[in-house]
């Protein structure tokens, strides 16, 4: 099972990608980008009423939802968002405490994972240089499709030192970026609860489809 765990649609202020257009693109690119679904992680927000079931049925892709929030240790992806979490944490606050957020989200039934850790200012590596490590981090986004040269490579030292699991996501803000990086799980995932369980306890790894797309474009 392969999911893109980090995507933004037009619900994020810096993206212009409609969810349906992502799905149409993925249908056309199945050979190069063989993912089974995506997780929408809109910036600094959680819409409890968003419902993509009709699109799931129409295009036969799994669509789950999370959020990307901003903390004093950089950006963090939150999966399994629920009322307890949104009651305790204001997702619009760009200075959330990561030391507080990450263990609390776990206690409340979700999971919070640092994304693009190699990125300056908003990645974990930059903050670990001068601050204590965060308690309760299970995995980090070792492969981010929006990273610049050297940023993904910078994460390896973090993984070696702290033993974090690794996952991947496209960080797509544009239609043609969807699924370029993703996460392959050993077990099937059918719901957000499954995803939280697998991210906590399962076996998974980042996968990179950019070479497939480049090869296809060159042929």
């Amino acid at each position: 099972m392969i999911l893109d765990l980090h995507t933004h649609s037009e619900a994020s202020e810096d993206s212009r990608a409609p969810v349906e257009t992502y799905l149409k693109w993925l249908q056309r690119k199945r050979a190069e980008v063989p993912i089974d679904g995506l997780v929408l992680t809109e910036h600094r927000q959680w819409d409890p009423h968003a419902d993509y079931r009709a699109l799931e049925d129409k295009y036969e892709f799994l669509i789950l939802r999370g959020a990307e929030v901003e903390t004093d240790y950089g950006h963090v992806l939150v999966y399994g968002v629920n009322k307890d979490i949104t009651r305790h944490f204001d997702f619009t606050n760009v200075r959330l405490s990561a030391q507080e957020l990450i263990p609390a989200v776990t206690d409340m039934g979700g999971i919070a994972l640092p994304c693009h850790p190699g990125r300056p200012t908003v990645g974990l590596c930059a903050h670990y240089d001068g601050k204590p490590p965060i308690e309760g981090v299970i995995a980090v986004e070792a492969l981010n499709g929006g990273s610049r040269r050297g940023e993904n490579e910078r994460v390896q030292e973090l993984i070696d030192r702290y033993g974090y699991k690794t996952f991947g996501g496209s960080d797509s803000h544009l239609v043609s970026f969807i699924g370029i990086c993703a996460t392959e799980f050993d077990r099937d995932i059918r719901s957000i609860d499954d995803l939280v369980t697998e991210l906590r306890e399962g076996v998974y790894r980042p996968v990179d489809f950019r070479a497939n797309l480049a090869k296809r474009a060159a042929s």
Binding site: E13, H43, R44, E70, T92, V94, R119, P120, T121, V122
Partner: peptide, 13 residues
Amino acid sequence: IYEKTGRSGSMVF
């Protein structure tokens, strides 16, 4: 009016 953070630091939009 909202704030966000990026590679270059915090920004107000």
